[in-house]
Design a protein around this nucleic acid. Structure first.
Lengths: 332, 332
DNA sequence: ACGCATTTTGCAACCGGTTGCAAAATTGCA
DNA sequence: TGCAATTTTGCAACCGGTTGCAAAATGCGT
C-alpha cells in the first residue's frame, strides 16, 4: 500500500538505516547520501510512518485532548486554540469526548492503547479523578480550566474560581444591591463549587445583604434560561452572578421573555467574556477569563513535561478582571 | 514502561502468540488458556498497544476529523456527535484544524504519517480539493456538509444547498416582500455559492421583485452583525435570507442595535435551526438542517468504506424544511 | 604516500505486536 | 483403547521503522 523505507532504500541503492537517518534530524548522513535518498523518496512519494517509528522511539507525538463540554461555545474556541497550538509544535490531538463517561479507567485504557505522549484535560466540570487516573498511568497530564490547589497532584492551568466568586460579590455589593443571587453551573463541578464558595464568603461579610443561590444543570444557554425562568417565578433577587456567560445570556433571554429588563429590573454579571458578551444587544458585564493565555500556557507546560515527565506539579493561575458593560445598575 | 505482551506471556508461562490470540477476537484459544492469560494480564495491568498491532494488521482505527470551522457554534455539536459516534464504534478521531491551511499536500502528508484508516472532512467551507487530495492518497474519505454533485469524486453527505436557496426565496416571495436580499457566508465556499445560486434562480422567475446580494466574511455571529450594519447604512432590502443562523442572529443583533425591529422593519430567514434559534427573544424563522442525521449517516458511510475501500462514491442528501417562527411578516 | 582521528555507512537486533504453518494436544467414535 | 479428525499451541518470520556497534570511508597533518 504505502511506500516503505525499505523500498526507498532499494531504489536509492543504500541501506535502510541510511534512509532512516536522512529522515531523523540529528543523525549523521553525508550530503551525497542525503541527496540520493531524498531523490528516491520523492520519486516514490515516501513519507515515514510515524506510528512505526514510535515503536522504537517511544514517542507518538499524540496528545489526548480530553473534554466533556460540548455545549458551551467557548469550548469551540478552546478546541481551536488547542488544536492549532499543538499542531504548530508537531503534536497531534486525539480528541476524546467524555460526555456520559463516569469511569476513568475506560479512558485510561483507551489512551494507553494509543500510547499518547500526554493528556490535556480541558474541562472545568470533569471530576479531578480523571486527571489523576491519567497521571497514575504514568502519562504527563495538564488539567486546563481545572481547580487550583495548594498541593496539586497534576499540573493545573486556569483561574482562581474562588477569587472570581469574591470579585463578583464585591462588585454586586459595590453597586448597592441588597438582595443578590448566585446562579451556578452544575453543582458537582469544582468550578461551580469554588465560585460559589468565594461568592458566599464575601457575602458573609455583609449580613445586611440577602444572598441566595441555585444551580443550573449544565453550562449551556438552555440551562441558564430554564433556571432563570424558575427563579423569576419564585421571586428573584435583584442581581445575579451567573457562573458562566452562557448561563448569563440564557438568563438574559429569560428576563427579556418575561417582559422584564436588565439592568432595570434585574442585574446580571457573568464569567468568561465570550465573544457574544460584547454585542450591543447583550452588552454583558462579566469577568474576563483569559482563555487564550490559559491554552497557550497549557501547551507550553505540556511540551515541557514531554521533556521532563518527572517535573514537579505546578499550578498556573491567571488573573481575571471585570469588564464593565451594561447589565448591572450604575451603583452608588 | 508499559507492560508488554511478552511479559504477560512469561508470567502466564505461555507463548507470545497465545497472549496475542486471547486479545484478538475470532482467534482460537482454549478456555483454560484464556483464563491463564487473562489472569496474568490483569495482574500486570496489561493493555495491548493498538499502534504496534496496526503495523501488521494495517488498521489503526484512527480517523482524521478534518475541519476549518471553529467559529460557528453548530460545529461544536458536530464535533460532539462525531467524536461520540466514532468512539462508539471503536474508532478514534484525530482532530485536524485546517484554519489558514491552503495546501492540501501538507495535511495529506500528516494524515498519512499517522496512517489514519479514513478521513472525515466536516466543513461546508473547505475547498473540495482537500477531500480529493485525501482520496488520491488512497484514504477513504467522507465529506460531510460538502457540495452535492451528480458526479461525485468522493462520498458526500449533506443537504441540497441550491434547493435551500430556492426554498428561502419562495418563502420570501410567498410572504409578499418586494425587495429581498441574500446575505451569504464567505463568497468562496461552495455552500454559499449554491445557496446563492438557488436563491437567484428562483428570484429570476419574479422579475417584479428586486433581489440584491452580499457576502459576510465568515460563518460567524460577528461577520453577520458587521454585514447587516453595513447593509442598514446603505438602504437595506425588506427581508434577507442569511446563509446561516449565526449570520442571522448576528444580523438580528445589528437590526436591534439600529433601533429597528424584526419582522416589522426587516424580515430574516436563516439556515440551520441551531439551538438558539428557538429562544423566545430570537425566535428565528429558519431552514432546518438535519445535523444529527448527516453526522450519523457520515459515520455509517465511513464504517462501510473501511470494509470496502473501493465502494463507489455516493452522495447522500437530506431534506431540509422551513421552521416558521417570528422573523418574517405573516404574508398574504 | 602514510598513519591516525573522525565521519559515514551497513549489519543485525530490537520495538510490540500478528499470523501461516506445522507440531502437539484434545476430541469423537468405533 | 486406538486412531483419525479437529482444535490448540508455539515457532519463526514479518509489519516499518530505529539504533549500538563495528567496519569502511574520508579527512588531515606531515
Amino acid at each position: 500500500m504505502a511506500v516503505t523505507l525499505k523500498e526507498v532504500a532499494e531504489r536509492a541503492g543504500v541501506s535502510r538505516s541510511a534512509v532512516s537517518r536522512t529522515f531523523t534530524d540529528g543523525a549523521s548522513v553525508s550530503d551525497k547520501m542525503r541527496r540520493k535518498v531524498e531523490k528516491a523518496a520523492k520519486d516514490l512519494g515516501y513519507s515515514p510512518n510515524a506510528l512505526a517509528s514510535s515503536l522504537t522511539t517511544g514517542r507518538t507525538k499524540l496528545i489526548g485532548l480530553v473534554s466533556n463540554n460540548f455545549h458551551n461555545p467557548i469550548f469551540l474556541e478552546v478546541f481551536d486554540l488547542f488544536t492549532r497550538g499543538l499542531q504548530d509544535r508537531g503534536l497531534r490531538p486525539l480528541l476524546v469526548n467524555l460526555t456520559d463517561e463516569t469511569d476513568p479507567e475506560n479512558s485510561v485504557r483507551m489512551l494507553r492503547q494509543y500510547s499518547v505522549d500526554g493528556v490535556v484535560v480541558a474541562s472545568s466540570t470533569l471530576p479531578p479523578e480523571f486527571a489523576k487516573a491519567f497521571r497514575d498511568a504514568g502519562v504527563p497530564v495538564v488539567h486546563s480550566f481545572g481547580r487550583a490547589s495548594s498541593a496539586p497532584q497534576v499540573h493545573v492551568v486556569g483561574i482562581d474560581n474562588v477569587e472570581c466568586g469574591r470579585m463578583a460579590a464585591r462588585e454586586l455589593v459595590r453597586r448597592g444591591y441588597t438582595h443578590v443571587g448566585f446562579m451556578g453551573g452544575p453543582e458537582g463541578a469544582s468550578s461551580t463549587q469554588d465560585r460559589y464558595s468565594g461568592f458566599m464568603t464575601e457575602m458573609s461579610a455583609h449580613p445586611d445583604i440577602k444572598a441566595s443561590h441555585s444551580f443550573a444543570d449544565a453550562y449551556s444557554f438552555d440551562a441558564g434560561r430554564r433556571e432563570m425562568l424558575r427563579l423569576l417565578k419564585n421571586g428573584p433577587a435583584q442581581a445575579y452572578f451567573c457562573g458562566d456567560d452562557v448561563l448569563s445570556i440564557g438568563a438574559l433571554s429569560a428576563i427579556d421573555d418575561s417582559g422584564l429588563s436588565c439592568p432595570d429590573n434585574i442585574g446580571i454579571i457573568g464569567l468568561n467574556d465570550m465573544e457574544m458578551a460584547q454585542w450591543e444587544n447583550i452588552d454583558l458585564t462579566t469577568i474576563h477569563q483569559p482563555i487564550r493565555q490559559i491554552v497557550t500556557s497549557s501547551i507550553e507546560l505540556m511540551v515541557a513535561m514531554l521533556d521532563d515527565p518527572e517535573r514537579y506539579p505546578e499550578t498556573r493561575i491567571f488573573p481575571c478582571s471585570i469588564v464593565e458593560r451594561g447589565t448591572l445598575k450604575p451603583g452608588i
